[in-house]
Amino acid sequence: MDGIFALAVDNLLSPIILFFALGLLAAFARSDLTVPESVAKGMSLYLLFAIGFKGGASVAAHGIDATLLLSLLAGLILSFVLPFVAFTLLRVMTGLSVTDAAAVAAHYGSISIVTFVAATSVATSAGLNSEGYMVAVAAVMEAPAILSALWLIARYDSSGSGKMEAGLLQEILLNGSIVLLVGSFLIGVITGAEGLAKIAPFIVSPFQGVLCLFLLDMGLVAGRGLREARDVLRPGLFLFGMVMPLIGSMFGLGAGLLLGLSPGGVMLFMTLSASASYIAVPAAMRVALPEANPSIYLTLSLGVTFPFNLTLGIPIYLTIAQALTGA
């Protein structure tokens, strides 16, 4: 317990978390601090490019094995299954309608790539190596949850809402973030350590600084979102936003241990299973399930679960992964 506490304090006092907190505070204080939209977009492209490439280069160095394929399969299954867990929990803990519960559940089956990037950074700082292909697992876990949510709607809602219209799945799978992440990963696999050495001054050294600035923006966005949508955050929902990541992380823990991943890999699997989407899934839900209230799912995933994972969740996952893998 002391270990978790010490790690949580260390994590809370790291630059990335403090910049996130600064963004949150600035938003709550109604400061006019903003990161221009195009700069934020540029930073997110940079982070995806860097994390994808480094993951690919790591796979090139360690080789491709059966565990990679099994990890991808496990990620796919978890993304399909977690929405059912979230949906059941939401129906028990909150008074959400079937439509809103299914929409929220989809977010918790998918992943937050920024949380993943932050967890990678924390794992590296803690001296833990992880499997480079976890980047590919993250990409695989982005979309299946949407299908689960639409199935839940079809099963439990008789109003006929929730349609998987033609082209939506293609739109989700080819969204810019996934294309860049997977593309950079593949280029990293092809070019390997030699390719990484060539661009290391661009993607390794500045990474932490860019992540700090990006998290400042995320803090601003999360804070403003929370301020505007605080009325929808009833106690049951708020609690769900913190309990669900812990439950999700246990699924990731089980998968990581069964696959025999490294401590860092187990911790990243836990983080992926614990995180909730706030980019790809909200957009898909607006198209497929417009009747669902966006302020509920966006506030929960971005305003509650994201800060929870960033501040407390990641140290917890790291400690558990270290304890159970003997790292």
Partner: peptide, 12 residues
């Protein structure tokens, strides 16, 4: 009320 400033994705 809503503002583009507080949106992280195109969804909002």
């Amino acid at each position: 009320q809503w503002s583009r400033e507080g949106q992280v994705s195109r969804a909002g």
